[in-house]
Computed example of a mutant assay.
Amino acid sequence: MQEIKAYGAQDKDADLKEMTIKRRDMNPNDVKIEILYCGVCHSDIHAKNNDWGNAKYPIVPGHEIIGKVVQVGADVSKYDEGDLVGVGCMVDSCQECSACEEDLEQFCENGMTGTYNGKDRIGGAESDHTFGGYSTSITVQEDFVLKIPENIDTKAVAPLLCAGITTYSPLNHWNIKKGDKVGVVGLGGLGHMGIKFAAAMGAETYMITTSPDKAEDAKALGADGVILSKEEDQLNKHKGSFDFILNTVPVKHDINPYLNLLKRDATMCMVGAIEPLEPMHGGNVIMGRKRVSGSLIGGIKETQEMLDFCGEKNITCDVEMIRMDEINTAFQRVQDSDVKYRFVIDMQSLKN
């Protein structure tokens, strides 16, 4: 086993602090990655605080990982030392079920292995659960490693591995294209990427928000217009006109006003709120044969397609860089919605 530096928490009430963890020794199909950057996702906070009731301690968060390959196993064919690579939200799956066979490892019928806080299928490390990217290195089997385009800002790529694929996947699945009218609800880490992707796909793109002060930011990100969801006249103006709505709001809220914006046979996809919502009025979907759906990240193949798309279109996240020892303050700022739009940790600061 390999001892490495990491940042993690011993329980839900503890701050994250420096610790030593043990990674497995290299297997023939493994890639060892020196971590250069790691994004900070709101899921990291939920997991650390055990908000979902499944936290395993000690916990080392981080599933938006960018790094350089420093060692490859004897059977590795896709990567060489020095390659710029990424690791997203999963590091393993059964690779045998129907979902895995369709490149939908995120929906693995036997449970995908999360990059952190997941049940370790492979073994060989001290812990029976996985540790994430708030660390100096990570060892991952090559099938769950991603190639990173080198023509775009490397540090701003990190959140693409969660916020990026979470918003790209539903837009891609519902075949958003030029001529479609797309609404993105909520302007945060997910919402700002939803706007960028929808616009890059050629859609007429609208930010739907409760905050008038977010209008300029939304247009700078690529939105064609802004709809204030508390203004009934604005909602009525766009009633029944949207082909697709991407809802990124991360907390319980009322989705009924947004359903009224959809065309007949159109879809609203939920990617933010993993919790109960306000009651939905059945008439809002029955009258128009509308759909409310959900989406969870993307498989490895689709995530690579998303990264390649970002390389072609020069799309990255808007980020604020922090040192590793600033993570506890960053967690609080995320909870206070005080970041535009994602924190990324310079992992060299953990070595110093």
Rank of each mutant, 00 (worst) to 15 (best):
Y258E: 03
E81C: 12
K68R: 14
L259C: 00
G189I: 08
D11L: 01
V182L: 05
H42C: 02
L190T: 00
K214T: 09
L235R: 03
I45F: 01
H192K: 03
L161D: 09
M112W: 11
T166V: 09
F309V: 05
G311F: 07
D15P: 06
M207P: 04
L307S: 08
G186H: 06
T303H: 09
T136K: 06
F197E: 01
A74H: 14
E18L: 14
Y116A: 02
L16I: 09
D318C: 12
A163P: 00
K214V: 06
V249P: 02
C94Y: 11
D243W: 08
T154S: 12
D80N: 14
M324N: 06
L190F: 00
T329M: 14
P276K: 04
K219A: 09
T267I: 15
A14E: 05
G164M: 07
V319L: 04
M19L: 05
Y341K: 09
W174G: 07
Y258A: 03
C94G: 08
V285E: 05
S229D: 05
P250G: 02
G288N: 05
K48F: 11
K178W: 02
I65A: 05
N284S: 11
G191F: 06
N284T: 14
P212K: 15
M324F: 10
V251S: 14
G194K: 02
C38S: 07
I208H: 08
D11Q: 06
F144V: 07
I274H: 12
A14M: 04
T248Y: 10
C162G: 02
L228E: 06
R323M: 13
T136W: 10
G118M: 03
L84H: 04
H42K: 02
K239P: 00
E302C: 07
V85K: 11
F331D: 02
I274Y: 11
E126C: 04
T329Q: 15
D180Y: 00
V226G: 10
K32D: 14
E232C: 02
N29T: 13
V226L: 10
N172I: 09
H46K: 09
D243R: 02
V85R: 10
K313Q: 01
H46Y: 11
A273C: 07
A330K: 06
N247E: 11
W52K: 05
I138M: 09
S127K: 13
I122N: 12
I21Q: 04
E231N: 15
G111M: 06
Q304P: 01
Q335Y: 11
N151Q: 07
D338H: 08
I45P: 05
E204I: 03
C269V: 14
M207R: 13
T316M: 01
D224I: 07
G118T: 00
F244I: 00
C97R: 07
V60W: 10
N172R: 15
